[in-house]
Nucleic acid binder design. Structure first.
Length: 573
RNA sequence: CGGGAUGUAGCGCAGCUGGUAGCGCACGUGCUUUGGGAGCAUGGGGUCGGGGGUUCAAGUCCCCCCAUCCCGACCA
């Protein structure tokens, strides 16, 4: 392709709308343009990268025996009403009506549609197992689209669904997808972690997320370098340290106007880990008191799961309720002597602590030397804390690390939730009718592209891994008005094309600096520069990822470039 | 959905206490230049986000709306 003809509107200035590197670079390098908040159009270079990623996904999905199909993006409401999700999605779903006032939506995900297909077409165990996938645009009216393509309202997703006769079969399908995902992200040149995740309100088990480590990631994950344990914030656990001290006599201390843990630390000159804090929640109309160590935070997702309620059913109690329950001003809540019906949820770490300090449920007082079991008991003891950097790994005890990650893939086991709701059943060998056991597997294609850029860029621009680069090589005649440079460049360009490489030639009549800067910005892995030394029969080969320049004879340039491209492709296959 | 900010040429921005809109880059033309975003000359390009109000006069002041970005909440 000739740059003189390619629609590649690179920007000299940083777009004011963009914040994170991938967003800035996708706009600057002319990969895409914004149409509206959270909606983007892709230009030739961007489209080629999407295609590369999609092709990798296809190859690896197919390799595991999965079959590509294409569902419609426009979905009749009835399907979502059958599973109750028409209402569950709420305003996140783009809903519309046809000319006859019938309800439709633009598909935010396709469990229902795939399950509908399978319930109509699959009747016997002989037709199972089956894994179907599609690569298609999804629509979600996000409350807050952000970071360019990271969280957008329209995005391309590879979604796959497995259909098995039983849970053992599902395990196998799940493992196939796990393997495929690892190969996909490896081939994209991504460094990632597979983390245990909270399956969320929609149910399911063995939820695993593929996370690309990046400071701009929206998810927080805890991981262990020693044993490979990794989990996202909602799920991460840690070992509990037990403190074997003798229990001391309980003691009330006067702490005038000392309400927060910080103030207590200051007032009593004792480390925050010696305190236990008590938070009062309203949970589905009931009052819940949750206890964690003073230097820790409550993880509300864990608390929700323990209580078996949904996000919107839990909120921190307001001042009057706290005062009613504790009989004291806000800031002096404790587990001893709470009034009325209060469910006491105690973090699993608390029973191991000794002689800690809690609020006295009396204004201006705290209680020292409190011990679990002797002085109070919880209704529920469970892990409800957030782990922090340095906590000990639950598997091997080594210190955990905390990082941010971009969720590029998610796999989990659905079980029979949808097959039962929609009546997707099969007949087994004995003639019994059973629900099909399902799994669900997603990859955000655009987000994967953005994640690749986050991990592969420098101050000059993108540095594409060869496997997803829009073109392998760019041929740059420094000065097109130099007839010799021009002709040699054209010759090399044509030969590279003959070798089936994907190649650009910068035949624009612009200064060398412009060409070099654009080549660096759009991140083409190999650059062949034809400059003054062409008179001596020499051209330059430079890799985008390296500083050095290699000088080669004109006759050898094509062979050398081909060798480099093939080698790089092999590394990522 | 709460908080904050911003909307002026394709992009990045300036425009004070109101007086009828400008800079850099980009774009067109001509000449010179040609290895890291060239120089000179010349030219074109604006419903100043929209609506209403105050005023002799509004990009500028007031009200409403819209859009975009950031933080938070949310994310099946």
């Amino acid at each position: 392709m000739r740059l003189s003809q390619l629609l590649m509107p690179t920007l000299r200035e940083v777009p004011a709308d963009a914040e994170i590197p991938s967003h800035v670079l996708m706009l600057k390098a002319g990969l895409m343009r914004k149409l509206a908040a959270g909606i983007y159009v892709y230009l030739p270079l961007g489209k080629r990268v999407l295609k590369k990623v999609e092709e990798i996904v296809r190859e690896e999905m197919d390799r595991e025996g999965s079959q590509e199909v294409l569902m419609s993006a426009l979905i009749p409401a009835e399907l979502f009403k059958e599973t109750g999700r028409w209402d569950v999605f709420g305003p996140e779903m783009f809903k519309l009506k046809d000319r006859n006032e019938r309800d439709f939506c633009l598909g935010p995900t396709h469990e229902e549609v795939f399950t509908d297909l399978v319930r109509n077409e699959v009747k016997s165990y002989r037709q199972l197992p089956l894994i179907l996938y599609q690569i298609q645009t999804k629509f979600r009216d996000e409350r807050r689209p952000r970071f360019g393509v990271m969280r957008s309202r329209e995005f391309i997703m590879k979604d796959a669904y497995s259909f098995d006769a039983d849970w053992e079969g599902l395990d196998e399908s799940f493992n196939k997808m796990y393997r495929a995902y690892c190969r996909i992200f490896d081939r994209c040149g991504l460094k990632y972690l597979v983390v245990e995740a909270d399956p969320g309100a929609m149910g399911g088990r063995d939820s695993k997320e593929f996370m690309v480590i990046s400071s701009v990631g929206e998810a927080v994950i805890a991981y262990c370098d020693s044993c490979g344990y990794a989990a996202n914030e909602e799920k991460a656990e840690c070992l509990i340290e037990s403190r074997d001290e003798e229990m001391l006599e309980i003691e009330k201390v006067y702490t005038p106007n000392v309400k927060t843990i910080e103030e207590l630390v200051d007032f009593l000159k004792i480390s925050p880990s010696k305190f236990v804090k008590t938070l009062i929640y309203k949970a589905k109309g009931k009052v819940v008191a949750a206890l964690v160590r003073g230097d820790r935070d409550i993880n509300e997702t864990k608390l929700l799961n323990v209580l078996g309620i949904r996000e919107e059913e839990l909120e921190l109690a307001d001042g009057p309720l706290v005062e009613e329950v504790t009989g004291a001003k806000v800031g002096f809540a404790g587990p001893l002597g709470l009034k009325g019906e209060v469910t006491l949820v105690v973090d699993s770490e608390i029973p191991q602590l000794r002689n800690f300090i809690v609020g006295a449920n009396e204004t201006d007082y705290h209680i020292k030397n409190v011990n679990y079991g002797r002085d109070f008991k919880g209704d529920i003891v469970a892990d409800i804390k957030s782990v922090v950097e340095g906590d000990r790994c639950p598997r091997c005890g080594a210190p955990l690390k905390i990082a941010r990650g971009i969720e590029v893939g998610h796999i989990f086991k659905l079980g029979t939730k949808y097959s039962e709701a929609l009546g997707a059943t099969y007949t087994d060998e004995e003639g019994n009718e059973k629900p099909i056991v399902m799994g669900c597997y997603g990859i955000g294609i655009n987000r994967t592209v953005a994640a690749i850029i986050e991990q592969h860029h420098d101050e000059k621009g993108i540095i594409w891994p060869m496997s997803v680069a829009p073109y392998h090589v760019i041929v740059v005649p420094v000065n097109v008005s130099d007839e010799e440079q021009k002709q040699i460049a054209e010759k090399i360009y044509n030969k590279l094309l003959e070798e089936k490489l994907e190649v650009l030639i910068d035949d624009r009549d612009v200064r060398a600096g412009v060409k070099f800067n654009d080549a660096d910005l759009i991140g083409i892995p190999v650059r062949v520069t034809i400059g003054k030394k062409v008179k001596e029969g020499i051209v330059e080969i430079k890799l985008r990822e390296r500083e050095e320049v290699e000088e080669v004879k004109v006759e050898e340039a094509v062979r050398r470039v081909k060798q480099i491209v093939e080698e790089k492709l092999r590394e990522l296959s």
